[in-house]
Computed example of a mutant assay.
Amino acid sequence: MSIFSFLFKEQNLPDAIAILDRKDYKSAISKGKVQLVDVRTKREFMSGHIKGAKNIDFFQGSSFESNFSELKKDQPVYLYCQSGNRSQKAARKLVKMGFDKVYDLRGGYRTWTY
């Protein structure tokens, strides 16, 4: 594994996962009702989040999975965390749970300036 692929883990993502830059992400979530999920902790979420996002903490184990089981697996899910690391891990989990398409915000909430 090269240092580049190690640093940019998105190289090895399943086809069901796409990483979007903030402009494309904003455009996608602005097109109507979407499944928008912030996988940060409740404290992080309360300090600021994208309007319309549901908070499902990645670190909550079985609660994480049960909360996602309430979402529609055949519709896209838009994820983000603080930097993009947790949301990529969450995206991989969702694909294993049977979600068809998962979009992740490149760089996470820290890049969100809207």
Score class of each variant (00 low, 15 high):
Ser66Glu: 15
Lys89Arg: 14
Ala90Met: 07
Asp15Leu: 09
Lys42Trp: 04
Gln88Phe: 07
Val102Phe: 04
Asp21Tyr: 05
Glu10Phe: 12
Tyr78Lys: 03
Ala28Cys: 09
Arg110Phe: 07
Lys31Gly: 11
Phe68Ile: 06
Ala18Pro: 00
Lys101Asp: 06
Val95Phe: 03
Val34Gly: 09
Asp21Asn: 15
Asn55Asp: 11
Gln82Ile: 05
Thr113Glu: 10
Asp104Phe: 00
Asp21Thr: 05
Gln88Asp: 05
Lys72Phe: 06
Phe59Met: 14
Lys96Cys: 00
Asp74Ser: 15
Asp24Trp: 01
Lys31Val: 07
Lys9Trp: 05
Gln60Val: 07
Arg92Tyr: 06
Gly48Ala: 04
Ala90Tyr: 06
Tyr78Glu: 01
Arg22Ser: 08
Tyr78Gln: 02
Lys26Met: 12
Ser66Trp: 02
Lys89Trp: 06
Asn85Phe: 11
Gly84Cys: 08
Gly107Thr: 02
Lys31His: 09
Asp21Arg: 03
Gln75Arg: 15
Phe58Glu: 00
Lys101Tyr: 05
Leu105Gly: 01
Asp21His: 11
Arg86Met: 08
Asp57His: 11
Glu70Asp: 14
Phe68Trp: 10
Gln35Tyr: 02
Arg92Lys: 15
Val34Trp: 10
Lys96Arg: 13
Asp38Gly: 02
Leu79Tyr: 09
Phe58Pro: 05
Lys26Ser: 11
Arg43Thr: 10
Arg43Leu: 06
Asp38Asn: 09
Gln60Met: 13
Phe6Arg: 14
Lys51Glu: 14
Gly52Met: 12
Lys26Pro: 00
Val102Ala: 01
Tyr109Trp: 10
Lys51Trp: 07
Lys23Gly: 05
Ser62Gln: 14
Asp21Phe: 05
Ile50Tyr: 01
Ile29Ala: 03
Tyr103Trp: 06
Phe64Asn: 04
Arg86Pro: 06
Leu94Pro: 10
Lys93Arg: 15
Lys23Asn: 14
Gly107Glu: 01
Tyr80His: 13
Gln88Trp: 07
Arg106Lys: 15
Arg86Phe: 03
Glu70Phe: 10
Lys42Gly: 09
Gly108Glu: 06
Ala90Ser: 13
Ile17Thr: 04
Lys73Pro: 05
Phe68Gly: 02
Phe45Arg: 04
Ile17Glu: 02
Asp21Leu: 03
Asn12Cys: 06
Cys81Trp: 09
Thr113Ile: 10
Gln11Asp: 08
Asn55Ala: 09
Leu71Arg: 02
Lys26His: 13
Phe99Arg: 05
Thr41Pro: 00
Lys72Gly: 05
Asp74Asn: 15
Ile29Gln: 03
Ile50Leu: 02
Gln88Glu: 15
Gly108Met: 04
Asn85Glu: 13
Gln11Gly: 08
Ser87Gln: 08
Cys81Ala: 14
Leu20Ile: 02
Phe6Glu: 13
Lys33Met: 05
Phe8Ala: 09
Val77Met: 07
Asn67Met: 13
Ser69Phe: 09
Arg43Trp: 03
Arg43Cys: 01
Tyr25Ser: 01
His49Leu: 01
Met46Ala: 14
Ser27Trp: 01
Tyr80Glu: 03
Leu20Ser: 07
Glu65Cys: 04
Gly32Pro: 02
Gly32His: 07
Arg40His: 06
Leu105Ile: 04
Phe8Leu: 10
Gly61Ser: 13
Lys33Asp: 09
Ser47Val: 00
Asp57Ala: 13
Glu65Ala: 12
Gln11Ile: 13
Ala91Gly: 11
